[in-house]
Design a binder for these strands. Structure first.
Lengths: 141, 141
DNA sequence: CTTTGTGCAAACACTTTGCAAGTCC
DNA sequence: GGACTTGCAAAGTGTTTGCACAAAG
């Protein structure tokens, strides 16, 4: 695994949570799925690592990791919730409604919009994972 | 109700659907709730208009209206699905993660972003109802 | 040893489906 | 009359909760 062991153990403890194998496995699963891990993908991965872990435990463990801030979750509507390790560079997705292709764009491409919203409404956009529907180059033609 | 009666009756028929009071009531409900009608709001409204209409009928009727194109649905994740009469001017929401306040912004405020995405990726943004998370003016200070 | 976490089963909310009876055309 | 719809009840989903036992600190 790519994350530092001490850090997240301290993180759990400092929030009054205990360190359990189940929680570590769930965290590993999110890591290993990588990128944007859908709930289904995380569950599948956890079950692969240890099939005796209960579904409710997975839900609870994910809540804990989100609570302590090591994992961030975003609800993408149709696609359900996706989990990822906090600190990954923010980015967004362009999803083609015709062919389903997914383009990834960097967060800073939103800066003009972000500046505009802040200037006009005082609203600070804090989206680290948007999914924007539309038509890709191939399907638009 | 604000919609033309003939139009949507023809619309149903032309798609091979029958005109039933239940379907009309569901359509009315979406109209009356106005703007973005959450599923819950639509259901509540329908029940108010005629409490004998079954939940399954409401779901099926909404599917029919979406199918014929008179109603559009967007899945807003956390907030669930919202329904609205097709043809309303497109716009988007800024949702404050701290206080829950919702700001509505016009679609054309996205034009710079839209142009950028089209120029750089050939991607045509087709979002008529985005929800962007962030912090509102009051909470950001 | 005390407190927290787990697995299990049951409860839950939300949505869909099968079917007989009713309705639209 | 014949096909489509409805209401009802039941079955699915996906997620949460209560509780006795197990594990962490």
């Amino acid at each position: 695994m790519s994350h530092e062991e001490k850090d997240y153990i301290q993180l759990l403890r400092s929030h009054g949570y205990r360190v359990t194998p189940q929680r570590l496995i769930v965290l590993d699963a999110v890591c290993e799925v990588g990128g944007h891990a859908t709930l289904g993908a995380v569950i599948a991965r956890v079950k692969m690592l240890d099939s005796t872990i209960d579904l409710s435990t997975i839900y609870r463990a994910l809540d804990v990791w989100v609570e302590v801030g090591l994992v961030v979750v975003s609800d993408m509507g149709e696609q359900g919730k996706v989990y990822k390790i906090a600190g990954d560079s923010a980015h967004h997705h362009l999803i083609c409604q015709s062919c389903g292709k997914v383009l990834t764009i960097r967060d800073d491409e939103f800066n003009p919009l972000l500046d505009h919203l802040q200037a006009k409404y005082g609203f600070i956009l804090r989206a680290d994972h948007l999914s924007l529907p539309g038509l890709c180059h191939d399907c638009a033609g």
